Computed example of a mutant assay.
Amino acid sequence: MTGTVLVTYGTTNGSTARIAGAIADVLRGEGLTVEALPARSVASVAPYDAVVAGGGVYAGRWQKHARRFLRRHRRALAERPLWLFSSGPLDASAAERDIPPVPGVKKAMAELDAREHVTFGGCLEEGAKGPVARMILRNGKGGDFRDFTAIRTWAAHVAHELTHEGA
């Protein structure tokens, strides 16, 4: 594939954006043309030959802008290679085992014929927005559980599929 890849994300406090940035960097490093954009700012996926979309998981649902992105662009997404990722657990569980997608993402995977989904650990640090986030932090449950080695490894796998398997 020699086209352009969109890496898009729904994030509330920036953690998922940083994961998307790391994915985009790996794809670029593999020679792909990549644009990384917040899900709420994507007007069309027509300029892209493949899409990687991610969302932070909050209370068992993908972040609202990520959900809306999949709904708004569902027809076009079903016509191109699509990979999905979630960011969420505020513990080491994502590094210890495969965490299935939340129900709404699982349904979207089937409807859009997504190639793959992966869940990465999340990050919630002081200054996070929202009353639930502040409560989690007050209870000492925050922290950074993103594994950037695992994120880069998965991105390299996606790049390989795009560049060697004629995605």
Rank of each mutant, 00 (worst) to 15 (best):
H65W: 07
L137A: 04
G55M: 02
G122A: 04
A133R: 13
R40P: 05
S15T: 08
D113H: 15
L84I: 11
A17H: 06
G56Y: 07
G31C: 08
L27I: 02
L90T: 05
L90S: 02
G29L: 11
A53E: 01
A95Q: 12
I136C: 00
S44G: 10
A39M: 06
K129P: 08
C123L: 06
P47M: 06
T33H: 14
P81V: 01
A94W: 05
S15D: 03
E125R: 03
V45R: 10
S41R: 15
R97N: 06
V34H: 01
L90Q: 03
V52Y: 00
E96H: 15
S86P: 00
L124A: 06
G122W: 01
V105S: 00
L37P: 02
A133S: 15
G121R: 06
A108H: 10
G55K: 01
S87M: 04
R72A: 14
M109H: 07
A53C: 09
V132S: 03
R72I: 12
I99C: 07
V132L: 09
L112T: 14
F85R: 00
G88Y: 01
P101S: 05
L32E: 06
L37H: 11
L84S: 07
G140D: 02
G104N: 13
R72M: 11
L70N: 09
N139R: 13
R134G: 08
K107S: 11
R97Q: 13
G31R: 11
R67M: 10
G127F: 06
E116G: 03
R72P: 04
K107R: 13
I19D: 00
R97W: 04
R28I: 09
G54M: 00
E126W: 04
R134E: 12
F85H: 04
V51S: 05
R72W: 11
A78G: 12
S93E: 05
E126M: 04
G121H: 05
M109A: 07
G127R: 09
H73F: 13
E125A: 02
R61Y: 02
A36Y: 05
E125L: 10
L32R: 10
P101G: 03
L90G: 00
P47W: 07
K64W: 14
P89I: 08
P103A: 02
G55R: 02
D49G: 15
A17C: 05
V34R: 00
W83M: 03
R138D: 08
R67F: 06
E79H: 03
A128P: 04
S41H: 13
G21Q: 03
A133I: 14
D91P: 01
K107Q: 14
L124G: 05
P47G: 04
V57N: 02
L124C: 04
I99T: 09
D25V: 06
G29H: 11
R71G: 15
I136V: 14
L32Y: 08
P47I: 07
A36E: 10
R75S: 14
L90K: 02
P38M: 05
G130F: 07
M109R: 10
G29N: 11
L70M: 13
A92R: 14
T119W: 00
R61Q: 08
K107E: 12
R115A: 08
A78R: 13
G55F: 00
T33A: 13
K107F: 07
L90R: 01
R61G: 00
G54N: 03
T33R: 15
K106Q: 13
A92C: 12
R67H: 11
W62E: 05
